[in-house]
Design a binder for these strands. Structure first.
Length: 477
DNA sequence: TTTGAAGTGTATACGGTGCG
DNA sequence: CGCACCGTATACACTTCAAA
């Protein structure tokens, strides 16, 4: 049989002992005999946590494969008589230096082992995620076997009766107690909404400080980490709910209570395509008569050779809310609309009208938005297209481009044509409230979301994979 | 073979609430 | 008061499958 060794530190003595069986019971017996200790407090060195961990039967799994095991032995008869939570080896929590067992704080070991009155819910939701406590988080290579939380406690008796530190105290989350909430000191380096990695970071810190957490409940270390991560998550969630409920970050994420009144308001001000003034109110200063006068004036002015553009803009502004009602609510035809407002046949005025819609973008200049978007993504898009079989229209464009003498000419011509045509087309769509053609819907959504940055309230978003590929290709070219 | 819709799974948020 | 749970919602990634 293969020889194994234990290296035992007891007071000033250090002994290396050969053993055949690396199990808790055997080693405990051996130590009691060799060192004449009645009630030894034994810790073993766990390389996973880089610290000393209490040596009990649960450690068998961790030490089974070791060839050399380091042990530290102390005579601690007094510890067992003392019901103090403080482990002699554990540094006191900074937030509860002298009262580790706060009377008002529930401890897991004080919870009843009988099922709570809440009925056992069978989790019948078809698609919604299952409760965390019932479904292990499936991380790769880390099979999780959590201890049963209260709702499922009735189903199992495997959970230990106590949640005690080796000294017999309660396990709470010492670093995150009320006096030290996420919004205050020790956790303040984390925002109110830590990422998964940050929660793991917190758990790692807790385990470093209190290694016994890793062996809690007889769980394998990876599961214990998941268990405590859950606890930290609860802690942060409850802290947000109780202490930070008035913080802007927390308020922002509050669930919106949609009343019937708000619903009807929402319908009234339909905020599609990210256009702030999709359906603005008609100003009090205007009525049907005045609007009619403005419209007639605009029609006359359009026919003149010497046009008063400043007043054209002013009157187009004034008639804008009325025009939007005609487009959105009265469903006026494009032909009738253009007859009423002939200025909308001008590309320049279409772009002006787009500005009146107040898009929720950095700039309200459609050409500028398109230019910036194309400059940013052109190389990536062209790169992707080159890798595929070229469609007929691209072949035609390539043929046309051969007539330009220099690269600069070609680029300039491409830009001018594309920008002029495309910005006009887009302005038409938004101004006339047209739906994207079904066949080109995804392409238009791409332009809307990626190139223009025009974010809808609706869920018309672009697949993240496309954005990812685009960023990667842009970086490559 | 490509594309897009629909379905599925995971993670994490919130509000409400029971319990000690 | 704080922990922990349930029910629900949302976002996102991934898979499956039918149609083009």
């Amino acid at each position: 049989m293969e020889n194994k060794f234990i290296v035992v530190n007891y007071g000033t003595q250090n002994k290396k002992i050969a053993v055949h069986d690396m199990s808790h019971d055997t080693l405990l017996k051996l130590i009691k005999e060799r060192f004449q200790v009645q009630s030894p407090d034994i810790k073993y060195y766990d390389q996973d946590v880089d610290d000393w961990v209490d040596f009990d039967r649960d450690a068998d799994e961790c030490i089974a494969t070791l060839k050399v095991l380091k042990l530290r032995v102390k005579e601690t008869q007094l510890l067992n008589e003392d019901e103090n939570c403080q482990d002699s080896d554990m540094p006191p929590s900074p937030t509860q230096p002298s009262t580790p067992c706060r009377p008002g704080t529930p401890s897991i070991n004080s919870r009843p082992q009988t099922p709570v009155s809440r009925p056992q819910t069978p989790v019948s939701r078809p698609q919604t995620p299952v409760s965390r406590s019932q479904t292990p988080i499936s991380r790769p290579d880390t099979p999780v076997d959590r201890p049963q939380t209260p709702s499922s406690r009735a189903e199992t008796s495997s959970r230990p009766d106590t949640c005690q530190s080796p000294g017999g105290g309660d396990l709470t989350l010492p670093l995150l107690s009320r006096q030290d909430t996420p919004s205050t000191s020790s956790a303040s380096k984390y925002s109110r909404y830590p990422t998964s990695e940050m929660y793991e970071d917190v758990v790692d810190g807790l385990i470093r400080e209190f290694p016994y957490l890793l062996t809690y409940g007889g769980l394998p270390p990876s599961s214990a980490r998941e268990f405590w991560k859950d606890k930290v998550l609860y802690k942060f969630g409850n802290a947000r709910k109780l202490l930070d409920k008035n913080h802007p970050d927390v308020k922002l994420r509050k669930k919106k209570v949609i009343t019937e009144e708000k619903k009807s308001e929402g319908n009234k001000n339909n905020f599609t395509w990210g256009l702030g003034r999709y359906l603005p109110d008609i100003p009090d200063t205007e009525d049907e008569t005045s609007l009619d006068i403005h419209t007639k004036w605009l029609q006359r002015e359009y026919k003149k050779t010497d046009q008063d553009l400043e007043n054209v803009n002013r009157k187009m502004d004034l008639t804008f809310p009325y025009r939007r009602r005609q487009i959105v609510e009265d469903k006026i035809s494009v032909r009738d609309l253009v007859e009423l407002y002939p200025w909308l046949t001008s590309r320049h005025e279409l772009l002006k009208e787009f500005q009146r819609l107040e898009p929720n973008t950095d700039s309200n200049d459609l050409v500028e938005l398109l230019t910036e978007g194309l400059q940013k993504y052109r190389k990536g898009i062209v790169g992707i297209m080159k890798a595929k079989k070229k469609p007929a229209f691209l072949v035609a464009i390539d043929e046309a481009a051969k007539h330009y003498r220099t690269e600069g000419q070609r680029n300039y011509a491409d830009d001018c044509m594309a920008l002029a045509a495309y910005s006009g087309l887009l302005a038409c769509i938004y101004v006339l409230n047209l739906a994207y053609p079904k066949d080109l819907e995804k392409s238009f959504l791409f332009v809307q979301n990626i190139l223009l940055g025009l974010k809808d309230n609706e869920a018309n978003t672009i697949d993240k994979r496309i954005e990812c590929v685009l960023h990667v290709t842009c970086d490559e070219w």
